[in-house]
Design a protein around this nucleic acid. Structure first.
Lengths: 248, 248
DNA sequence: CGTCCCAATATGTATATACATAATCGCCAT
DNA sequence: ATGGCGATTATGTATATACATATTGGGACG
Protein backbone atom coordinates (compact mmCIF):
# COMPACT_ATOMS: atom_id res chain seq x y z
CA UNK A 1 0.00 0.00 0.00
CA UNK A 2 1.23 3.43 -0.83
CA UNK A 3 2.21 5.75 1.98
CA UNK A 4 0.46 8.61 0.27
CA UNK A 5 -2.90 6.90 0.50
CA UNK A 6 -2.48 6.64 4.23
CA UNK A 7 -1.93 10.33 4.60
CA UNK A 8 -5.24 11.84 5.60
CA UNK A 9 -6.26 15.06 3.99
CA UNK A 10 -6.40 17.22 7.08
CA UNK A 11 -2.76 18.10 7.01
CA UNK A 12 -1.43 15.14 8.94
CA UNK A 13 2.16 14.12 8.46
CA UNK A 14 2.92 11.28 6.14
CA UNK A 15 3.25 8.32 8.42
CA UNK A 16 3.48 4.64 7.77
CA UNK A 17 0.69 2.65 9.32
CA UNK A 18 3.18 1.15 11.69
CA UNK A 19 4.26 4.59 12.90
CA UNK A 20 0.72 5.78 13.16
CA UNK A 21 -0.28 2.93 15.43
CA UNK A 22 2.82 3.59 17.50
CA UNK A 23 2.18 7.27 17.96
CA UNK A 24 -1.54 6.82 18.55
CA UNK A 25 -0.90 4.49 21.44
CA UNK A 26 1.97 6.54 22.81
CA UNK A 27 -0.28 9.58 22.78
CA UNK A 28 -2.99 7.72 24.69
CA UNK A 29 -0.51 6.63 27.33
CA UNK A 30 1.40 9.87 27.72
CA UNK A 31 -1.76 11.95 27.80
CA UNK A 32 -3.03 9.77 30.61
CA UNK A 33 -6.09 8.64 28.68
CA UNK A 34 -4.80 5.13 29.22
CA UNK A 35 -3.50 4.96 32.76
CA UNK A 36 -0.92 2.45 33.95
CA UNK A 37 -2.51 -0.95 34.30
CA UNK A 38 -5.03 -0.25 31.57
CA UNK A 39 -5.38 -3.05 29.06
CA UNK A 40 -4.85 -1.79 25.57
CA UNK A 41 -6.85 -3.36 22.74
CA UNK A 42 -5.87 -6.84 21.64
CA UNK A 43 -3.86 -7.24 18.50
CA UNK A 44 -6.87 -8.54 16.63
CA UNK A 45 -8.89 -5.51 17.71
CA UNK A 46 -6.23 -3.11 16.49
CA UNK A 47 -6.01 -5.16 13.33
CA UNK A 48 -9.68 -4.43 12.75
CA UNK A 49 -9.43 -0.81 13.87
CA UNK A 50 -6.57 0.06 11.54
CA UNK A 51 -7.63 -2.39 8.88
CA UNK A 52 -4.23 -3.97 8.62
CA UNK A 53 -2.58 -7.29 9.33
CA UNK A 54 -1.65 -8.61 12.73
CA UNK A 55 2.04 -8.48 11.84
CA UNK A 56 1.91 -4.73 11.50
CA UNK A 57 0.15 -4.32 14.82
CA UNK A 58 2.48 -6.80 16.42
CA UNK A 59 5.56 -4.91 15.24
CA UNK A 60 4.25 -1.69 16.74
CA UNK A 61 3.33 -3.29 20.05
CA UNK A 62 6.64 -5.12 20.26
CA UNK A 63 8.39 -1.82 19.85
CA UNK A 64 6.34 -0.20 22.59
CA UNK A 65 7.12 -3.14 24.83
CA UNK A 66 10.83 -2.82 24.14
CA UNK A 67 10.66 0.87 24.97
CA UNK A 68 9.08 -0.09 28.28
CA UNK A 69 5.82 1.74 27.75
CA UNK A 70 3.68 -1.36 27.78
CA UNK A 71 3.92 -4.85 29.12
CA UNK A 72 2.68 -7.81 27.14
CA UNK A 73 1.24 -10.91 28.73
CA UNK A 74 0.29 -13.97 26.77
CA UNK A 75 -3.30 -14.94 26.98
CA UNK A 76 -4.03 -11.73 28.90
CA UNK A 77 -3.20 -8.90 26.56
CA UNK A 78 -1.00 -5.81 26.68
CA UNK A 79 -1.00 -3.36 29.54
CA UNK A 80 0.25 0.16 30.13
CA UNK A 81 3.28 0.10 32.40
CA UNK A 82 4.26 2.46 35.16
CA UNK A 83 6.73 4.96 33.75
CA UNK A 84 10.08 4.34 35.31
CA UNK A 85 13.18 6.27 36.11
CA UNK A 86 15.91 6.11 38.66
CA UNK A 87 16.41 8.44 41.54
CA UNK A 88 18.90 8.43 44.34
CA UNK A 89 18.51 6.93 47.74
CA UNK A 90 15.72 7.80 50.09
CA UNK A 91 15.34 6.94 53.71
CA UNK A 92 12.78 4.44 54.82
CA UNK A 93 10.46 6.77 56.60
CA UNK A 94 8.53 6.12 59.75
CA UNK A 95 5.44 8.24 59.96
CA UNK A 96 5.28 8.29 63.75
CA UNK A 97 8.72 9.86 63.85
CA UNK A 98 7.81 12.40 61.23
CA UNK A 99 4.69 13.44 63.09
CA UNK A 100 6.41 13.64 66.44
CA UNK A 101 9.17 15.67 64.88
CA UNK A 102 6.48 18.22 64.11
CA UNK A 103 5.64 18.35 67.80
CA UNK A 104 2.21 16.83 67.23
CA UNK A 105 0.58 13.88 68.95
CA UNK A 106 0.58 10.77 66.80
CA UNK A 107 -2.23 8.24 66.46
CA UNK A 108 -3.00 5.36 64.14
CA UNK A 109 -6.49 4.18 63.37
CA UNK A 110 -7.47 1.13 61.37
CA UNK A 111 -10.16 1.61 58.78
CA UNK A 112 -10.33 -1.81 57.21
CA UNK A 113 -8.90 -5.28 57.51
CA UNK A 114 -9.52 -8.07 55.04
CA UNK A 115 -8.01 -11.50 54.65
CA UNK A 116 -8.27 -13.01 51.20
CA UNK A 117 -6.59 -15.04 48.52
CA UNK A 118 -4.46 -12.79 46.36
CA UNK A 119 -6.09 -11.72 43.12
CA UNK A 120 -4.21 -10.62 40.04
CA UNK A 121 -3.91 -7.05 41.29
CA UNK A 122 -2.60 -8.14 44.68
CA UNK A 123 -0.02 -10.31 43.03
CA UNK A 124 1.06 -7.50 40.74
CA UNK A 125 1.54 -5.14 43.67
CA UNK A 126 3.41 -7.64 45.79
CA UNK A 127 5.35 -9.16 42.93
CA UNK A 128 4.00 -12.62 43.61
CA UNK A 129 3.98 -15.26 40.94
CA UNK A 130 1.49 -17.57 42.61
CA UNK A 131 -1.73 -17.01 44.42
CA UNK A 132 -1.76 -17.22 48.19
CA UNK A 133 -3.27 -15.67 51.30
CA UNK A 134 -2.82 -11.95 51.82
CA UNK A 135 -3.94 -9.43 54.39
CA UNK A 136 -5.27 -6.14 53.07
CA UNK A 137 -5.18 -3.25 55.54
CA UNK A 138 -6.25 0.34 55.35
CA UNK A 139 -5.60 2.88 58.06
CA UNK A 140 -5.09 6.51 58.90
CA UNK A 141 -2.11 8.20 60.50
CA UNK A 142 -3.11 11.27 62.48
CA UNK A 143 -1.09 14.32 63.44
CA UNK A 144 -3.13 15.79 66.25
CA UNK A 145 -6.71 15.82 65.10
CA UNK A 146 -5.90 15.99 61.42
CA UNK A 147 -5.34 13.01 59.12
CA UNK A 148 -1.69 13.07 58.10
CA UNK A 149 -1.50 10.12 55.74
CA UNK A 150 -3.64 7.30 54.42
CA UNK A 151 -2.05 3.87 54.38
CA UNK A 152 -3.13 1.03 52.11
CA UNK A 153 -1.18 -2.12 52.71
CA UNK A 154 -0.94 -5.68 51.52
CA UNK A 155 0.88 -8.26 53.57
CA UNK A 156 1.97 -11.55 52.07
CA UNK A 157 0.77 -14.06 54.67
CA UNK A 158 2.88 -16.80 53.12
CA UNK A 159 5.91 -14.80 54.22
CA UNK A 160 4.51 -13.46 57.51
CA UNK A 161 1.96 -15.95 58.77
CA UNK A 162 1.68 -14.37 62.23
CA UNK A 163 0.24 -11.21 60.75
CA UNK A 164 -3.01 -13.10 60.21
CA UNK A 165 -3.58 -13.12 63.99
CA UNK A 166 -2.99 -9.41 64.47
CA UNK A 167 -5.85 -6.93 64.42
CA UNK A 168 -3.81 -3.77 63.76
CA UNK A 169 -6.51 -1.69 65.39
CA UNK A 170 -4.22 0.95 66.83
CA UNK A 171 -0.85 -0.47 65.97
CA UNK A 172 0.42 0.58 62.59
CA UNK A 173 1.54 -2.43 60.54
CA UNK A 174 4.80 -0.76 59.50
CA UNK A 175 6.57 -0.80 62.85
CA UNK A 176 4.99 -4.18 63.65
CA UNK A 177 6.50 -5.71 60.53
CA UNK A 178 9.91 -4.13 60.95
CA UNK A 179 10.16 -5.71 64.38
CA UNK A 180 9.42 -9.18 63.05
CA UNK A 181 10.60 -9.47 59.48
CA UNK A 182 14.09 -8.48 58.47
CA UNK A 183 13.92 -6.90 55.05
CA UNK A 184 16.67 -7.34 52.55
CA UNK A 185 15.45 -5.13 49.77
CA UNK A 186 12.95 -2.37 49.18
CA UNK A 187 11.67 -0.36 46.30
CA UNK A 188 10.06 3.05 46.43
CA UNK A 189 7.80 4.61 43.87
CA UNK A 190 6.89 8.22 44.27
CA UNK A 191 4.35 10.09 42.26
CA UNK A 192 1.66 12.72 42.37
CA UNK A 193 -2.02 11.94 42.11
CA UNK A 194 -5.36 13.68 42.34
CA UNK A 195 -7.41 12.57 45.35
CA UNK A 196 -10.41 10.49 44.39
CA UNK A 197 -13.60 10.55 46.42
CA UNK A 198 -12.55 7.86 48.85
CA UNK A 199 -9.14 9.34 49.51
CA UNK A 200 -10.46 12.87 49.81
CA UNK A 201 -13.01 11.65 52.32
CA UNK A 202 -10.48 9.81 54.43
CA UNK A 203 -7.94 12.63 54.45
CA UNK A 204 -10.56 15.35 54.84
CA UNK A 205 -9.48 17.24 51.74
CA UNK A 206 -11.22 18.18 48.51
CA UNK A 207 -11.64 15.62 45.78
CA UNK A 208 -9.16 16.31 43.01
CA UNK A 209 -6.67 17.91 45.38
CA UNK A 210 -3.07 16.91 44.65
CA UNK A 211 -1.54 14.19 46.80
CA UNK A 212 1.90 12.73 47.12
CA UNK A 213 1.88 8.96 46.81
CA UNK A 214 4.73 6.87 48.16
CA UNK A 215 4.58 3.18 47.44
CA UNK A 216 7.02 0.75 48.95
CA UNK A 217 7.58 -2.89 48.22
CA UNK A 218 9.72 -4.89 50.57
CA UNK A 219 11.41 -8.24 50.15
CA UNK A 220 12.99 -10.56 52.64
CA UNK A 221 15.44 -12.85 50.91
CA UNK A 222 13.54 -13.18 47.62
CA UNK A 223 10.15 -13.34 49.31
CA UNK A 224 7.84 -10.39 48.79
CA UNK A 225 6.75 -9.28 52.24
CA UNK A 226 4.55 -6.26 51.88
CA UNK A 227 3.36 -3.55 49.61
CA UNK A 228 2.29 -0.28 51.12
CA UNK A 229 0.92 2.90 49.66
CA UNK A 230 1.03 6.13 51.64
CA UNK A 231 -1.10 8.97 50.41
CA UNK A 232 -0.25 12.42 51.77
CA UNK A 233 -2.12 15.62 51.15
CA UNK A 234 0.25 17.74 49.07
CA UNK A 235 0.59 20.51 51.66
CA UNK A 236 1.47 18.20 54.50
CA UNK A 237 4.48 16.50 53.13
CA UNK A 238 7.81 16.87 51.39
CA UNK A 239 10.30 14.08 51.01
CA UNK A 240 13.88 15.10 51.51
CA UNK A 241 16.92 13.19 50.38
CA UNK A 242 20.44 14.42 50.81
CA UNK A 243 23.45 12.68 49.37
CA UNK A 244 26.92 12.84 48.00
CA UNK A 245 27.99 11.34 44.69
CA UNK A 246 29.18 7.77 44.66
CA UNK A 247 32.20 7.03 42.57
CA UNK A 248 30.63 6.64 39.20
CA UNK B 1 10.55 -23.18 14.01
CA UNK B 2 11.24 -24.14 17.56
CA UNK B 3 13.59 -22.05 19.63
CA UNK B 4 15.25 -25.16 20.94
CA UNK B 5 16.40 -26.19 17.51
CA UNK B 6 18.18 -22.90 17.14
CA UNK B 7 20.10 -23.38 20.32
CA UNK B 8 23.45 -24.80 19.39
CA UNK B 9 24.76 -27.59 21.48
CA UNK B 10 27.89 -25.86 22.74
CA UNK B 11 26.16 -24.26 25.67
CA UNK B 12 24.94 -21.12 23.99
CA UNK B 13 21.94 -19.36 25.42
CA UNK B 14 18.59 -19.97 23.85
CA UNK B 15 18.15 -17.08 21.46
CA UNK B 16 15.71 -16.44 18.72
CA UNK B 17 17.30 -16.12 15.33
CA UNK B 18 16.38 -12.49 15.34
CA UNK B 19 18.20 -11.91 18.60
CA UNK B 20 21.19 -13.89 17.44
CA UNK B 21 21.62 -11.80 14.33
CA UNK B 22 21.26 -8.69 16.45
CA UNK B 23 23.87 -9.68 19.00
CA UNK B 24 26.27 -11.00 16.37
CA UNK B 25 26.30 -7.69 14.57
CA UNK B 26 26.40 -5.65 17.75
CA UNK B 27 29.39 -7.67 18.84
CA UNK B 28 31.19 -7.01 15.58
CA UNK B 29 30.59 -3.29 15.89
CA UNK B 30 31.31 -2.89 19.58
CA UNK B 31 34.45 -5.00 19.38
CA UNK B 32 35.72 -2.79 16.58
CA UNK B 33 35.90 -5.61 14.06
CA UNK B 34 33.62 -3.54 11.88
CA UNK B 35 34.81 0.02 12.08
CA UNK B 36 32.59 3.05 11.46
CA UNK B 37 31.91 3.42 7.78
CA UNK B 38 32.20 -0.30 7.15
CA UNK B 39 29.48 -1.73 4.97
CA UNK B 40 27.82 -4.63 6.68
CA UNK B 41 26.56 -7.54 4.56
CA UNK B 42 23.46 -6.97 2.47
CA UNK B 43 20.22 -8.37 3.68
CA UNK B 44 20.31 -11.09 1.08
CA UNK B 45 23.80 -12.10 2.18
CA UNK B 46 22.73 -12.36 5.81
CA UNK B 47 19.68 -14.25 4.66
CA UNK B 48 21.99 -16.83 3.14
CA UNK B 49 24.42 -16.79 6.05
CA UNK B 50 21.77 -17.43 8.70
CA UNK B 51 19.57 -19.46 6.40
CA UNK B 52 16.49 -17.44 7.19
CA UNK B 53 14.09 -15.11 5.43
CA UNK B 54 14.78 -11.53 4.54
CA UNK B 55 12.06 -10.36 6.95
CA UNK B 56 13.94 -11.73 9.90
CA UNK B 57 17.16 -10.08 8.83
CA UNK B 58 15.32 -6.87 8.05
CA UNK B 59 13.76 -6.75 11.48
CA UNK B 60 17.13 -7.11 13.14
CA UNK B 61 18.77 -4.47 10.96
CA UNK B 62 15.88 -2.06 11.43
CA UNK B 63 16.31 -2.40 15.15
CA UNK B 64 20.03 -1.71 14.95
CA UNK B 65 19.30 1.33 12.83
CA UNK B 66 16.79 2.61 15.36
CA UNK B 67 19.32 2.09 18.12
CA UNK B 68 21.71 4.25 16.12
CA UNK B 69 24.38 1.62 15.64
CA UNK B 70 24.06 1.43 11.88
CA UNK B 71 22.82 3.62 9.09
CA UNK B 72 20.86 2.21 6.18
CA UNK B 73 20.97 3.58 2.66
CA UNK B 74 18.77 2.34 -0.13
CA UNK B 75 20.54 0.87 -3.04
CA UNK B 76 23.85 1.22 -1.18
CA UNK B 77 23.58 -1.01 1.85
CA UNK B 78 23.92 -0.63 5.60
CA UNK B 79 26.90 1.00 7.26
CA UNK B 80 28.36 1.17 10.74
CA UNK B 81 27.79 4.63 12.19
CA UNK B 82 30.20 6.83 14.07
CA UNK B 83 29.86 6.00 17.75
CA UNK B 84 27.29 8.24 19.32
CA UNK B 85 29.24 10.34 21.77
CA UNK B 86 27.12 9.80 24.86
CA UNK B 87 29.17 10.57 27.92
CA UNK B 88 27.87 8.41 30.71
CA UNK B 89 26.46 11.13 33.00
CA UNK B 90 25.76 10.23 36.55
CA UNK B 91 22.65 8.58 37.78
CA UNK B 92 21.22 11.84 38.97
CA UNK B 93 18.00 12.18 37.21
CA UNK B 94 18.84 13.06 33.64
CA UNK B 95 15.66 13.82 31.81
CA UNK B 96 17.07 13.14 28.38
CA UNK B 97 17.90 9.62 29.44
CA UNK B 98 14.48 9.10 30.93
CA UNK B 99 12.79 10.28 27.78
CA UNK B 100 14.98 8.24 25.50
CA UNK B 101 14.40 5.21 27.68
CA UNK B 102 10.76 5.59 26.73
CA UNK B 103 11.77 5.39 23.10
CA UNK B 104 10.76 8.96 22.42
CA UNK B 105 12.71 11.75 20.75
CA UNK B 106 14.01 14.23 23.28
CA UNK B 107 14.16 17.97 22.89
CA UNK B 108 14.87 20.89 25.19
CA UNK B 109 13.50 24.34 24.61
CA UNK B 110 14.35 27.45 26.55
CA UNK B 111 11.45 29.61 27.61
CA UNK B 112 13.21 32.33 29.54
CA UNK B 113 16.66 33.52 30.50
CA UNK B 114 17.35 36.31 32.91
CA UNK B 115 20.54 37.55 34.51
CA UNK B 116 20.09 39.48 37.75
CA UNK B 117 21.41 40.16 41.20
CA UNK B 118 20.00 37.59 43.61
CA UNK B 119 16.99 38.74 45.56
CA UNK B 120 15.88 37.35 48.88
CA UNK B 121 13.98 34.48 47.29
CA UNK B 122 16.91 33.53 45.08
CA UNK B 123 19.22 33.47 48.07
CA UNK B 124 16.80 31.30 50.01
CA UNK B 125 16.56 28.79 47.21
CA UNK B 126 20.29 28.65 46.59
CA UNK B 127 21.27 28.88 50.22
CA UNK B 128 23.35 32.01 49.65
CA UNK B 129 24.14 34.36 52.48
CA UNK B 130 25.20 37.33 50.37
CA UNK B 131 23.78 38.86 47.25
CA UNK B 132 25.48 38.20 43.94
CA UNK B 133 24.80 37.60 40.23
CA UNK B 134 22.52 34.70 39.32
CA UNK B 135 21.13 33.31 36.10
CA UNK B 136 17.45 32.39 36.11
CA UNK B 137 16.40 29.92 33.45
CA UNK B 138 13.13 28.36 32.51
CA UNK B 139 12.76 25.66 29.90
CA UNK B 140 10.71 22.73 28.72
CA UNK B 141 11.80 19.14 28.23
CA UNK B 142 9.84 17.42 25.48
CA UNK B 143 9.14 13.76 24.89
CA UNK B 144 8.17 13.75 21.26
CA UNK B 145 5.72 16.57 20.79
CA UNK B 146 4.51 16.50 24.36
CA UNK B 147 5.96 18.54 27.22
CA UNK B 148 7.51 16.10 29.66
CA UNK B 149 8.77 18.41 32.36
CA UNK B 150 9.12 22.08 33.15
CA UNK B 151 12.46 23.20 34.52
CA UNK B 152 13.00 26.32 36.60
CA UNK B 153 16.61 26.88 37.49
CA UNK B 154 18.84 29.29 39.29
CA UNK B 155 22.58 29.24 38.70
CA UNK B 156 24.95 30.93 41.06
CA UNK B 157 27.20 32.89 38.70
CA UNK B 158 29.74 33.50 41.44
CA UNK B 159 30.37 29.78 41.38
CA UNK B 160 29.97 29.19 37.62
CA UNK B 161 30.91 32.41 35.84
CA UNK B 162 31.04 30.83 32.37
CA UNK B 163 27.32 30.11 32.52
CA UNK B 164 26.69 33.81 31.93
CA UNK B 165 27.94 33.42 28.34
CA UNK B 166 25.75 30.47 27.52
CA UNK B 167 22.36 30.93 25.90
CA UNK B 168 20.88 27.51 26.83
CA UNK B 169 18.53 27.77 23.88
CA UNK B 170 18.44 24.08 23.07
CA UNK B 171 21.00 22.79 25.52
CA UNK B 172 19.56 21.86 28.87
CA UNK B 173 21.52 23.47 31.68
CA UNK B 174 21.66 20.22 33.68
CA UNK B 175 24.03 18.30 31.41
CA UNK B 176 25.95 21.49 30.69
CA UNK B 177 26.62 22.03 34.38
CA UNK B 178 27.51 18.45 35.09
CA UNK B 179 30.20 18.61 32.45
CA UNK B 180 31.78 21.68 34.01
CA UNK B 181 31.16 21.78 37.72
CA UNK B 182 31.98 18.86 39.95
CA UNK B 183 29.33 18.64 42.64
CA UNK B 184 30.06 17.40 46.09
CA UNK B 185 26.65 17.36 47.62
CA UNK B 186 23.02 17.51 46.60
CA UNK B 187 19.64 17.65 48.23
CA UNK B 188 16.35 16.56 46.78
CA UNK B 189 12.93 17.69 47.81
CA UNK B 190 9.98 15.86 46.37
CA UNK B 191 6.39 16.87 46.73
CA UNK B 192 3.04 17.08 44.99
CA UNK B 193 1.48 20.29 43.82
CA UNK B 194 -1.51 21.53 41.89
CA UNK B 195 -0.56 23.12 38.58
CA UNK B 196 -1.12 26.86 38.59
CA UNK B 197 -2.06 28.74 35.45
CA UNK B 198 1.48 29.27 34.23
CA UNK B 199 2.58 25.68 34.80
CA UNK B 200 -0.60 24.25 33.31
CA UNK B 201 -0.07 26.39 30.26
CA UNK B 202 3.54 25.35 29.80
CA UNK B 203 2.88 21.65 30.30
CA UNK B 204 -0.35 21.62 28.34
CA UNK B 205 -2.42 20.24 31.19
CA UNK B 206 -5.41 21.54 33.13
CA UNK B 207 -4.93 24.12 35.84
CA UNK B 208 -5.23 22.42 39.21
CA UNK B 209 -4.03 19.08 37.85
CA UNK B 210 -1.63 17.28 40.19
CA UNK B 211 2.08 17.56 39.45
CA UNK B 212 5.16 15.95 40.88
CA UNK B 213 7.76 18.51 41.88
CA UNK B 214 11.40 17.57 42.30
CA UNK B 215 13.72 20.26 43.59
CA UNK B 216 17.45 19.82 43.75
CA UNK B 217 20.09 21.96 45.30
CA UNK B 218 23.70 21.24 44.47
CA UNK B 219 26.90 22.30 46.17
CA UNK B 220 30.47 22.17 45.02
CA UNK B 221 32.78 22.25 47.99
CA UNK B 222 30.67 24.54 50.17
CA UNK B 223 29.60 26.79 47.32
CA UNK B 224 25.98 26.60 46.26
CA UNK B 225 25.97 25.94 42.54
CA UNK B 226 22.42 25.64 41.38
CA UNK B 227 18.84 25.17 42.42
CA UNK B 228 16.50 23.46 40.02
CA UNK B 229 12.83 22.65 40.16
CA UNK B 230 11.37 20.05 37.82
CA UNK B 231 7.62 19.94 37.46
CA UNK B 232 6.16 16.80 35.94
CA UNK B 233 2.53 16.16 35.07
CA UNK B 234 1.40 13.46 37.51
CA UNK B 235 0.65 10.89 34.83
CA UNK B 236 3.98 11.20 33.13
CA UNK B 237 6.26 10.39 35.95
CA UNK B 238 7.06 8.07 38.79
CA UNK B 239 10.30 8.18 40.69
CA UNK B 240 11.70 4.79 41.48
CA UNK B 241 14.33 4.04 44.07
CA UNK B 242 15.49 0.57 44.90
CA UNK B 243 17.88 -0.18 47.69
CA UNK B 244 19.14 -2.54 50.32
CA UNK B 245 19.74 -1.71 53.97
CA UNK B 246 23.21 -0.39 54.63
CA UNK B 247 24.11 -2.88 57.31
CA UNK B 248 22.70 -6.44 57.15
C1' DC C 1 30.02 14.98 -24.70
C1' DG C 2 26.42 15.84 -21.69
C1' DT C 3 21.67 14.94 -20.42
C1' DC C 4 17.70 12.33 -19.71
C1' DC C 5 15.53 8.17 -18.75
C1' DC C 6 15.22 3.42 -17.63
C1' DA C 7 16.76 -0.81 -15.50
C1' DA C 8 18.86 -2.81 -11.63
C1' DT C 9 19.34 -3.04 -6.80
C1' DA C 10 18.79 -2.61 -1.73
C1' DT C 11 15.96 -1.21 1.57
C1' DG C 12 10.94 -0.09 3.47
C1' DT C 13 6.46 -1.61 4.44
C1' DA C 14 2.71 -4.58 4.44
C1' DT C 15 0.09 -9.07 3.82
C1' DA C 16 -1.29 -13.88 4.62
C1' DT C 17 0.06 -17.85 6.79
C1' DA C 18 1.94 -21.19 10.05
C1' DC C 19 3.24 -23.04 14.17
C1' DA C 20 5.23 -22.39 19.05
C1' DT C 21 4.58 -20.86 23.69
C1' DA C 22 2.53 -19.28 27.84
C1' DA C 23 -1.30 -18.22 30.62
C1' DT C 24 -5.91 -18.69 31.83
C1' DC C 25 -10.60 -20.58 32.10
C1' DG C 26 -13.72 -24.01 32.90
C1' DC C 27 -14.79 -28.71 33.26
C1' DC C 28 -14.40 -32.82 35.75
C1' DA C 29 -13.15 -36.10 39.15
C1' DT C 30 -11.87 -36.45 43.73
C1' DA D 1 -14.23 -26.70 47.94
C1' DT D 2 -9.83 -28.44 45.62
C1' DG D 3 -6.65 -29.88 42.42
C1' DG D 4 -5.47 -31.45 37.90
C1' DC D 5 -6.03 -31.27 32.96
C1' DG D 6 -7.26 -30.07 28.43
C1' DA D 7 -9.20 -26.40 25.41
C1' DT D 8 -8.88 -21.77 24.37
C1' DT D 9 -6.67 -17.57 23.59
C1' DA D 10 -3.16 -13.92 22.91
C1' DT D 11 1.24 -13.23 22.04
C1' DG D 12 6.10 -14.68 19.87
C1' DT D 13 8.64 -15.90 15.96
C1' DA D 14 9.42 -17.09 11.38
C1' DT D 15 8.31 -17.77 6.32
C1' DA D 16 7.11 -16.54 1.55
C1' DT D 17 5.40 -12.99 -1.12
C1' DA D 18 4.34 -8.50 -3.06
C1' DC D 19 4.88 -4.01 -4.20
C1' DA D 20 6.79 0.82 -3.00
C1' DT D 21 10.70 3.85 -2.79
C1' DA D 22 15.24 5.71 -3.20
C1' DT D 23 19.53 5.61 -5.46
C1' DT D 24 22.90 4.26 -8.63
C1' DG D 25 24.78 3.06 -13.09
C1' DG D 26 24.58 2.70 -17.81
C1' DG D 27 22.72 3.35 -22.30
C1' DA D 28 20.10 6.09 -25.86
C1' DC D 29 19.93 10.23 -28.07
C1' DG D 30 20.43 14.99 -29.17
Amino acid sequence: MSLVEIDDIEGGEILSLHQRILSDIREKILSGAWVPGHRIPFEHELTAQYNCSRMTVNKALSQLAKAGLIERRRRSGSFVRQPQSQAAVLELHDIRIEVEALGLPYRYERLERLKRRSGAEDRALLGLSQSGPVLALEGLHFAGERPFALEQRLINLSAVAEAAEEEFLEIAPGPWLIGRVPWSEAEHRIRAMAADEAIADALDIDAGAPCLVVERRTWSAEYPVTHVRFVYPAESHTLVARFTPSQG
